[in-house]
Design a protein around this nucleic acid. Structure first.
Lengths: 219, 219
DNA sequence: CGAACATTGGACCATGCAGTCCAAGCTAGA
DNA sequence: TCTAGCTTGGACTGCATGGTCCAATGTTCG
């Protein structure tokens, strides 16, 4: 009822097939985009038949939505455990490192699978559009939680807006991934994330490393 | 020879037709993406026939490349004159305002036409990929120039890296546009650009408004 | 004028695609 | 065991798409 329209009984075998389909679709979409992935491709990659696709999903859009969820889960999973404990500047930096490493390892695959989808789907089906929003929000949620904790614990000044900070980090992440995908280097992503984290740091109450670090040297 | 393979004579009439095609293609791509734009759509929108398309362009990819250039030109044009004078913090803020206003006005159209293309084309034809890189570089170039000037004039500390700063701003811009497209508000874009500009500001030598603005209030 | 050549119209083709349909196989519970 | 319904195979349809081809029509220039 969430991703599929009716919810047939779903025996173990059926559930396994459904999972195989979604994972295959998510992989293909990550590599070739939604428009570049045909149902025949999904069939081949998941060793299923057309009737199976349409047994478990209402249509291609429905499958796309399921794949988006899957991709979100997978992405977040790949950033754990760091993702779940983003409540200090060092923790943010560790997460940054993990994100960059992940990109390096999967460099041949495009940038952010969610970003690609969002760009591609943005118009079209409003239902799918809503799913994309939720995916982004889910992804950003640990960030928001961590930043809120930091502020409440006094690591960040009271006037720090966790919501704005989290959104800034997400934007840096997405933009960095896009540029990294285009230029085929992790450098843009690294710079963007550093920028975002320094931005958080500028709200830090720890004056030891508050901004204007070595301003002395050029006075 | 730049976008088209052979370069036939190109009489005034031919040049006009070619232009009509490219502009129509760029518009359609901005709205529906590259994959979502068919040659028939382009034909209809530009009032041309298929033989005309293939007379002026080798294939769809070739047309896509031409449209990317066109879109870059158009985007940069829409940000002038601010774009050409990004050599101070106030100038950067004026540019920011213009970018956000532009997005507000064309809210129904997707985010960054170049970003969408980059995301879509990233794999596929390496020639097209190269064009996308050049487009981004061209767009960022005024930014780089301005930041370099700022550093050389002493507005920014000597250890400021104009290249890194420019890339950070571009990432914020792209990511902000993507999120704004997804959430249908300019807020993410505004926040991302503010973050990037504050980042530049953190390298400012003007101590009057160097970061840690009103840290007093919570001590 | 007449010959190159740029330009245009539009029929045509092969292919790939999403989506439909029905009959056959499998499984679980009564 | 028997049956209801979950599960699967795969042929088939209708359509859109990128790309080809050729003949007709302008246009330029010697």
């Amino acid at each position: 009822m969430m991703t599929s329209q009716r919810t047939p009984k779903l025996t173990p075998r059926g559930a396994a097939t459904r999972t195989r389909i979604v994972e295959a679709a998510a992989n293909l979409i990550r590599e070739h985009g939604a428009a570049g992935t045909s149902l025949d491709d999904v069939m081949a990659a998941s060793r299923t038949s057309k009737s199976q696709l349409y047994h478990y999903f209402a249509n291609k859009d429905d499958l796309l939505r399921a794949a988006a969820w899957q991709q979100t889960d997978r992405t977040m999973e790949s950033q754990r455990p760091e993702l779940d404990q983003l409540d200090s500047l060092p923790a943010l930096r560790r997460w940054r490192d993990k994100v960059i490493t992940a990109r390096d390892e999967a460099k041949d695959l495009g940038g952010c699978p969610l970003g690609s989808l969002a760009n591609e789907i943005a118009d079209g089906d409003p239902q799918t559009h809503a799913v994309l929003q939720k995916c982004f929000t889910a992804w950003a949620s640990p960030l928001l939680t961590g930043l809120t904790t930091m502020r409440d614990q006094g690591q960040l000044r009271p006037d720090a807006d966790p919501d704005a900070l989290a959104e800034g980090i997400m934007a840096a992440l997405q933009g960095g991934l896009l540029l990294s995908k285009t230029y085929r280097t992790s450098r843009p992503l690294a710079r963007a994330l550093d920028m975002a984290i320094e931005h958080v740091e500028s709200y830090s109450t720890d004056t030891r490393k508050s901004v204007i670090p070595d301003q002395r040297q050029e006075l």
